[in-house]
């Protein structure tokens, strides 16, 4: 957009994982964002085990990252071998062979909407200390824009997400999310996923549908479930 030399800007997806490893003493990281088709896309994994943990959760539809997606708050499993795993029994059984000591998941938030998760694992068991918790939240928040861009990229321009969404259009997307939240009496995350799904099902961009919602040409009240 403009020729900025500003080095606050995060560039390569692979670089996104590294700060977590450097600053938190974890073994591996994967970052997943929920794309226009409602499915997840992994924007980076630092190693094969991290990628496998990520993949298993999304194949099975359960695990710490799913829990974080639903709640919008971190999910911490400091000791995988002694944990109860009531919420993810199949996932727990499946990672047995991966020799993972601890698992942590942090949300990527777009306002009140969870648009993705950061999954961390460590070979050894043990909790994150308060300072590490704070750093993890900080690092995750620095990823929000990347996640938002992925999340808003329209279904018809997937893979071309770089060029499409202007900041002004994003405002309408967020406003529409708030309106749909009321129309469906639900949470921000679900309201947003409905907006995405509607756009995808109709071959339109999220911002295009959002504009119709904001201008009151489209209400999710009158849409079939």
């Amino acid at each position: 957009m403009h020729d900025s030399k500003n080095d606050f800007v995060v560039a390569e997806p692979t670089d996104l994982c590294l700060p977590f490893i450097d600053d938190l003493g974890v073994t591996g990281v994967s970052i997943a964002v929920f794309g226009p088709r409602g499915g997840q896309s992994t924007i980076c994994s630092s190693d094969a085990v991290a990628a496998r943990i990520d993949e298993l959760q999304f194949d099975l539809g359960e695990g710490p990252q799913w829990a974080t997606l639903k709640t919008g708050v971190p999910t911490l499993v400091p000791n995988v071998s002694t944990g109860t795993h009531d919420s993810w029994p199949i996932f727990a059984a499946s990672i047995g062979s991966l020799h993972v000591g601890a698992l942590f998941a942090f949300p990527l938030l777009m306002g009140a909407v969870t648009v993705g998760t950061v999954g961390l694992y460590r070979r050894t068991a043990g909790a994150l200390n308060p300072r590490h918790m704070e750093i993890a939240v900080t690092l995750a928040s620095a990823l929000t824009d990347v996640a938002v861009r992925h999340a808003i990229a329209g279904a018809d321009n997937e893979g071309d997400g770089e060029s499409m969404v202007t900041p002004a259009m994003r405002r309408e997307v967020h406003q529409a999310t708030g309106m749909i939240l009321v129309q469906l009496d639900t949470t921000g995350t679900i309201a947003y996923s409905r907006l995405q799904a509607h756009a995808f099902a109709n071959g339109r961009t999220v911002q295009d549908v959002a504009r119709d919602v904001v201008s009151r040409h489209l209400s999710f009240r009158s849409l079939p479930e």
């Binding site: 909407v113 406003q175 999310t177 708030g178 309106m179 009321v182």
Partner: peptide, 15 residues
């Protein structure tokens, strides 16, 4: 992100 939250809240109030 606070700005995004405010936009979402505007949507809620507007609706």
């Amino acid at each position: 992100n606070s700005r995004i939250l405010i936009e979402q809240a505007k949507g809620v109030v507007s609706e």
